[in-house]
Amino acid sequence: MARPVWSGTLSFGLLNIPVSLMTGERKTDISFRMLDARNNARVRYERVNAETGEEVPWKDIVKAYEYDKGSYVVLEQEDIASAAPESHDAIEVEAFVEAGSIDPRYFEKPYVLVPAKKAEKGYVLLRDALEKTGRIGIARVVIRTREHLCAVMPYGKALLLLMMRYPQELVELEEYNIPEGDRGDYRITAKELAFSEQLIDTMSGDWDPAEYRDEFRERLHKVINDRMKADGVVRHAPEAEAEVAEGAATNVVDFMSLLQRSIDRNKRTPAKKAAPAKKAARKATKKAAAKKSPAKKATKKAAARKRA
C-alpha cells in the first residue's frame, strides 16, 4: 500500500476532518542509471569542492542563496525555520469559489484526500456540500517546510486536493507574440471557418482516457524486456514498508453546532479581515511568551543558588 505524503486535518470553519494525503498520479517515466562501460559499475555523483576538487562530507555542506553571480549569503537552519509557516498539520480552507472560475493554468498536481477511520461523516458532508453547490475550496497546506496553495474539490466519491501555482509563478501572456486581432485581420474567410467547424464536429466525441497511451514508453519497455531476456536480470529484495498510524475519530462531533458557529462567525467578520487578526494574535502571543521566558530563567537561577 502506498505511503501518505502528509497526514493531518482538513479544516473549514470550525470543522476538522483527519485525512491522509495520497498521491493521485503514477510516474510512468523510465529512468536510467549511468554505468562505467568497462565493468558495468555504477557511476556516482560526488559532492566535490569546485576549488580543491575534494569530496565534501554532508556535515560541511550549508545552504546559500546566490544574490549575484558568484556572490552568496549563507543561511543557517534557524533562518529557514523562521520563515516557515506555523501550521504544519492542517489543510485550512480559506474560501469557497465557483468551480469553473479558476484559470486552468493554476492547477499543477493531483492528490487524493483519504479520511482517517471514523472520520467518514465529515468527509462525506464536505464532499456532498461541494458537489451540490458547485464550488471548490481554496486552501493552504504545509508539506515539509514549504507552504502550498491548493484546491479541494469533489470527484466521484472522493475529495481531491490539487496543488496550485501562485500568480507570480505564471508567465503573463503579453510576454509572447500572441495574435490579438479579429480573424478578418488575418484574411480568414467565412468558408474557411465553416470548414474548420465542420472538421471539429467530425472529430468530436466523449472523453475516454483509456484511448490514449504512452506508446514511446510501451515500445521502450519492450526493448528493455528483450534486453533482459538476452542478458539476464539482477534482482534485489524489496524494502519493507512502515505501518501508517490511524487518525483520530470525528464522527462523534456535533456537526450542526460547528457549522452554525462557523456561519455566525463569518457573518460577523469578513473573511479578508480575519486573516490579519489571526496573525496579530499570534504575534502578541509570541511577544508575551518571549517576555515571560527571561523571568522563568531568573527564577530557575535563584532556586539553584538557594540549593547551593
Rank of each mutant, 00 (worst) to 15 (best):
V56K: 06
P57M: 11
P57S: 12
P57H: 08
W58P: 14
W58G: 01
W58N: 14
W58T: 15
K59L: 08
K59V: 04
K59A: 15
I61W: 13
V62N: 11
V62F: 01
V62T: 14
V62Y: 08
K63W: 05
K63P: 00
K63N: 10
K63R: 15
A64W: 12
Y65A: 07
E66Y: 13
E66D: 11
E66F: 14
Y67G: 09
D68E: 15
K69Y: 10
G70R: 08
G70D: 08
G70P: 02
S71W: 14
Y72R: 12
V73D: 08
E76A: 13
E76D: 11
E76L: 06
E76C: 03
Q77K: 13
E78R: 08
E78S: 13
A81L: 08
A81Q: 09
S82V: 00
S82W: 00
S82Y: 00
A83Y: 05
A83P: 01
A83Q: 07
A84T: 03
A84R: 00
P85Y: 02
P85V: 02
E86I: 13
S87G: 09
H88S: 14
D89H: 15
A90E: 14
A90W: 03
E92W: 11
V93M: 04
E94A: 11
A95G: 07
F96Y: 07
E98I: 05
E98F: 09
E98H: 09
A99F: 06
A99D: 04
G100W: 05
I102G: 03
D103K: 07
D103F: 10
D103H: 06
D103S: 08
P104K: 04
P104R: 04
P104V: 08
Y106H: 11
F107A: 02
E108P: 02
K109S: 05
K109D: 05
K109I: 05
K109T: 10
K109V: 01
K109W: 10
P110T: 01
Y111E: 01
V112H: 11
V112L: 13
V112K: 11
L113D: 01
L113A: 06
L113I: 04
P115Q: 05
A116N: 06
K117N: 12
K117L: 11
K118C: 06
K118V: 09
A119W: 04
A119L: 09
E120C: 07
E120H: 11
E120T: 14
K121E: 11
K121I: 13
K121A: 12
G122T: 03
Y123C: 06
V124E: 14
D128Y: 05
A129L: 11
A129I: 04
L130G: 04
L130D: 01
E131N: 13
K132V: 12
K132L: 15
T133Q: 09
G134S: 10
G134M: 08
R135P: 07
R135F: 07
R135D: 02
G137A: 04
I138G: 02
I138Y: 01
A139F: 00
R140W: 00
R140E: 09
V141G: 00
V142R: 06
V142E: 06
V142N: 07
I143A: 00
I143M: 12
T145N: 13
R146D: 00
R146M: 01
R146T: 05
R146H: 02
E147R: 03
H148K: 08
C150R: 02
C150V: 15
A151R: 02
A151M: 06
V152Q: 00
